[in-house]
Design a protein around this nucleic acid. Structure first.
Length: 649
RNA sequence: GCUGAUGUAGCUCAGGGGUAGAGCACUUCCUUGGUAAGGAAGAGGUCAUGGGUUCAAAUCCCAUCAUCAGCUCCA
């Protein structure tokens, strides 16, 4: 008798060894149809692998991660089978499932290439093979047998992988005429793969090491239903339409110039307006949390970064030292604001009564990024951090840390980021030379973060080895409107820089003590944040933030003067308004300004000019009727105020 | 940085060893209008840069630069 415990705690009993598929069928035929893989005591198994002892199981369908994973992993095998059929003699590297789909790295026979245009043929072959409804079968073999098998195929990649495996843990999966080394799990049959799209092909080094041979990597995605593929392709299109580089150009927000240099964004008036709005908002929030603005220059003496440790860690890979012509002094473009802020702290003696001190600065920093890493506003060489450093006592650390989390919550709420997770990044204990500072301080800092995150009830994941060199981090990742994840804000606890800079305060005991520093940037960088915001909103920013809130459209040039009067009036109420006085018909002006994502359009003609009114059109909602100028101004003020006050709740 | 693709007007893109193309945007004129494209004319390009091949190069070759994608997801 075998007892199978289901996730709801209920137990099913079976006489003989039973497979995941059989259990699903026992529950309902519909479930049996949909189930893709099974977790047996938290280990992922194939559906048709017999369970021989008492276990807890979870059945995975398409809608959970494990189900998709098995589906895509099998799809990778199906693609490999198709590649082997079309390009005999191909050697195979690895072919995992990834977040959205799968890839396979292959080494094609001499003289053969797979180009974008070949993907359609490959897709067709995959569908043809899937329709053969071949079972995917698992087989466990000894290490020697595995080695021999792939030696006959002369597949040095698989041989390399096998030689690193323990004997007794090696499994093969076969479908049709194709066999691959694989841990699994897989679908029972390739026939479940109904819709296939191969997305791209690119080079990738074997095991990610540029000293190794470059293999051909083919990316693809598959679905159990054609409709799901269609939806996915629509989503891809949508993501493409939201590309901040495209929208940034369309909306005249920012630009790049080869003559200024790569990765150095230029903010145009509307983009600058947007940034200013964000900065004003954050400054206001921070002020209410007791922050003080400071300002520091863009360069600093090399000694500063030697003290902080940045020079040693990043100096070689950074923008190089700037020398003064006469004295030969050495300066660096600042890659961080923290050393400057430490010097501000140091400029005066401090009592425990002064703490916490919270120094904030929209500080522009410059970092060398490899040319191939640059990407729009999300990866640049010069950017402005919404930086602040909190100097506090050990007693204050937990409270201060939690207050920073509150600020981040306010920002996410203000900008409608509803879904987010937090990542606790700890140091890699096996690789301590990557970090500065004592073990004791690291432990304290890591504990502080874990506790604060817990007390705030954050949904966290923990990654070891992802810490900054001077301290552990709590990073926030948001999900945007089309489901993509972005890393934004960061909070870091740091015991090390205060030590390196010999920061002190006098305690109640009249002794010198060392403050603790919190580094934090809720937006991360203004550049990156604006990019994410553009992609999240598709350029349709909330009213309080958008560079142009209102455009006035005179029916004909006869009413330009009235339009200008209305515009002046609204601008006096701090409503950002312009007049579209082009010699065009009203339909045209509406169309153009809707496409420019203007929230409110005001149509003014004879009727309105006579009665001091405006005809209001809300973006995407059409005609909203007529109201007086004052009434409209109040509506806007109210809407903005509601958006802003909801931010502080 | 490495691998590959791309680079033609402000934008989106066609073309292609022998006088540089379209649509949109822009300028001027006509039109003066009522809720998503009125009409006409015009201007705008050393075809990324530098070399080479050729009677002739925007086109073919090489190099450089930039942009895009991948190189981070590890059977």
């Amino acid at each position: 008798m075998i007892n199978i415990t289901l996730p709801d705690g209920s137990i099913k009993q079976f006489e003989n060894p039973v497979t995941g598929y059989e259990i699903a069928r026992d529950i309902s035929p519909r479930l049996a149809k949909e189930v893709l893989a099974v977790s047996v005591d938290e280990e992922l198994w194939d559906l048709n692998r017999p369970i021989e002892s008492d276990s807890s199981i979870v059945l995975h369908k398409w809608d959970d991660k494990e189900g998709k994973h098995a589906f895509w992993h099998s799809s990778a095998h199906l693609m490999a089978e198709a590649i082997e059929a079309l390009y005999p003699g191909t050697k195979f590297g690895i072919g995992p499932a990834i977040e959205n789909g799968f890839y396979y790295d292959v080494d094609l026979p001499e003289g053969k290439v797979i180009a974008e245009k070949d993907l359609a043929v490959l897709e067709k072959k995959m569908l043809e093979l899937a329709r053969q409804k071949n079972n995917i079968e698992r087989r466990e073999i000894s290490k020697d047998d595995a080695l021999n098998l792939f030696k006959t195929k002369a597949d040095e990649y698989k041989i390399e992988l096998i030689s690193e495996l323990e004997d007794g843990t090696i499994s093969l999966y076969s479908q049709g005429g194709f066999t691959d080394l694989c841990r699994g799990p897989h679908l029972p049959n390739t026939a479940d793969i109904k819709a296939i799209k191969l997305l791209s092909v690119a080079g990738a080094y074997w095991r990610g090491d540029e000293k190794n041979k470059m293999l051909t990597r083919v990316y693809g995605i598959t679905f159990p239903k054609a409709k799901l593929l269609e939806e996915y392709l629509v989503l891809l299109e949508e993501a493409k339409k939201r590309d901040h580089r495209k929208i940034g150009r369309e909306m005249d927000l920012f630009t790049f110039s080869q003559d200024v240099g790569m990765g150095l964004p230029l903010w145009m008036p509307k983009g600058a307006q947007l940034r200013e709005q964000l900065e004003t908002f954050l400054k206001k929030v921070q002020k209410s949390f007791g922050y003080e603005q400071v300002m520091t220059p863009h360069i600093g003496d090399v000694r500063l970064y030697k003290t902080s440790g940045h020079y040693e860690k990043y100096g070689k890979d950074s923008f190089q030292v700037i020398n003064t012509p006469q004295e030969g002094e050495e300066y660096l473009l600042k890659p961080m604001n923290c050393p400057h802020h430490c010097e501000i702290y140091k400029a005066r003696p401090h009592s425990y009564k002064d703490l916490p001190l919270r120094y904030a600065e929209f500080g522009t920093v410059y970092r060398y990024e490899q040319s191939g890493e640059l990407h729009g506003l999300t990866r640049v060489r010069g950017f402005t951090q919404d930086d602040a450093h909190i100097f506090c006592t050990p007693d204050q650390l937990n409270g201060e840390f939690k207050k920073v989390i509150d600020i981040i919550f306010i920002i996410f709420k203000a900008l409608d980021f509803k879904e987010f997770t937090a990542q606790i990044s700890l140091r890699d204990p096996k690789n301590t030379e990557k970090y500065i500072g004592s073990d004791e301080n690291w432990e304290k800092a890591e504990r502080a973060i874990i506790e604060a995150a817990q007390e705030k009830g954050l949904n966290t994941v923990t990654e070891t080895g992802e810490a900054a060199f001077y301290g552990p981090k709590l990073d926030f990742m948001i999900k945007d409107a089309v489901g993509r994840s972005w890393q934004l804000g960061t909070i870091q606890v740091d015991y090390n820089l205060p030590e390196r800079f010999e920061l002190e305060y006098t305690g109640a005991d009249n002794q010198k003590h060392r403050p603790i520093m919190i580094h934090r940037a809720p937006f991360g960088s203004m550049e990156r944040f604006v990019a994410v915001l553009i992609e999240h909103t598709a350029g349709k920013f909330p009213l309080w933030l958008t560079p142009e809130q209102v455009v006035i459209l005179p029916i004909s040039e006869k009413f330009n003067e009235y339009a200008q009067k209305v515009s002046n009036k609204l601008n006096n109420c701090d409503i950002r308004t312009v007049v579209d006085d082009r010699n065009e018909k009203i339909g045209r002006k509406i169309r153009d300004n809707e496409l420019k994502r203007i929230p409110y359009l005001l149509i003014v003609g004879e009727k309105e000019a006579e009665t001091d009114t405006v005809s209001v059109r809300r973006q995407g909602q059409g005609d909203q009727g007529t109201m007086s100028i004052d009434e409209f101004a109040q509506t806007i003020e109210k809407e903005v105020k509601e958006q802003m006050t909801s931010l502080y709740v």
